[in-house]
Design a protein around this nucleic acid. Structure first.
Lengths: 207, 207
DNA sequence: GTCGGCATACCGACCGGTCGGTGTCCAAAG
DNA sequence: CTTTGGACACCGACCGGTCGGTATGCCGAC
């Protein structure tokens, strides 16, 4: 140690002095997104984070754990955001549009997490996979609730099952990572609004 | 060999006597879809196909080659289908609806190939990945041409970029594998028609 | 004989995970 | 103030196992 300090363990003192677990998660996310979970060795992760394997296995039970934590963080954040938007007092169409646009924006802001989500889910251990799926389903159900609300009130068409529409939409969202490039001409919010429009207009009762 | 025969090499003489390369491709597809490319060992594939590693490396240059052949087959078939539908003399809306519905049906009929496509693309060697992307882009461009045709004629809204709409739609299609179950209550064609409707209605000029 | 079409045995690389050890800090004892 | 003990955070060499790929041999067809 060249730098002596009185920092408490777990406390960040600078850019590359961030808490070790955070650094591990951060670099693991980048590497998993770029090369895939299986193609990324634990050795690579710890080297990128500037620590050793001992450190990693001190904080995480396994390589799987690392992946799971990445998922859990994303899911928590997206669920929190949806809940906040969906339960506001705004009119239904606005709430749905905001929820749709927001999930697109947050997916673009965290493209790496998004990429990992669709590429590596099946590489988790079965029980952790179950946990992720359950959380994911809760999220989808909340979103579907908004669609069903509009169908019940007559604002939306009823000739398309709500779950089909929801899966249709989230397919698009999950695939953002495969084509969206930051160098493109559209901002994340613009894409989000386009997607929200497409969803809302697809839900208009047929003329 | 317990069974002697006078069949020519490469000639099918029965169900499990199909040509060796075909059997390898078939079982590799199933295993890749179920366990992922990296988690499937060459040993497992050849055992499932009832041959040995020697046979596999006789017909394929590498494990990567196997994956690439699976992609190439799917791409060829989908491109052929799109071309046939898109260039028929039918009205534009019908051609686009048919193209959309067809790609959904074929994606569901070959759910395994579809699953592999979105999970394992990045595990191909860079040059093969480039080849796949190029072919894929040609397909998307042909599809986008239909959308642009409708925008030019005034049938479709022009306030959404055609490429955004196309990516929106194909995101949904690619993700069918993550939720569609054959045990569900909707047939592949029903889903296809729903998806086509959603696309066409999202493209209606805003009222 | 020789050539395609495989089978079998084997290699070297690599990988996830373990484990005994080490430095640092703090708190209580003396 | 000094000593001591031990919890915490981390290090890094090492191991058992697996995997993609290869070298070589056999065998029937021509």
């Amino acid at each position: 140690m060249t730098r002596a300090s009185t920092r408490k363990p777990g406390e960040a003192t600078g850019d590359d002095q961030a808490a070790v677990p955070r650094r591990l998660l951060e670099h693991a996310t980048k590497l998993f997104a770029k090369k895939g979970f299986d193609r990324t060795s634990v050795q690579e992760i710890v080297e990128a984070a500037g620590v050793t394997k001992g450190a990693m296995y001190h904080y995480f039970g396994s390589k799987d754990d690392l992946l799971y934590e990445i998922y859990a963080r994303v899911l928590r954040e997206q669920t929190r955001q949806l809940e906040s938007v969906a339960s506001s007092g705004a009119p239904l169409r606005e709430r749905l549009a905001a929820a749709a646009s927001d999930v697109v924006v947050s997916s673009i802001d965290n493209l790496d997490d998004n990429t990992i989500f669709l590429q590596s889910m099946h590489q988790l251990s079965p029980d952790k996979q179950k946990a992720v799926r359950a959380e994911r389903r809760k999220y989808h159900e909340r979103f579907r609730g908004l669609v069903e609300e509009g169908q019940a009130s007559g604002e939306f068409r009823t000739d398309k099952p709500a779950d089909v529409v929801v899966d249709f939409f989230f397919g698009s969202v999950h695939h953002l990572g495969s084509w969206y490039r930051r160098s493109g001409s559209l901002t994340a919010r613009q894409i989000g609004d386009h997607y929200a429009d497409l969803l809302l207009d697809a839900l208009r009762p047929p003329g």
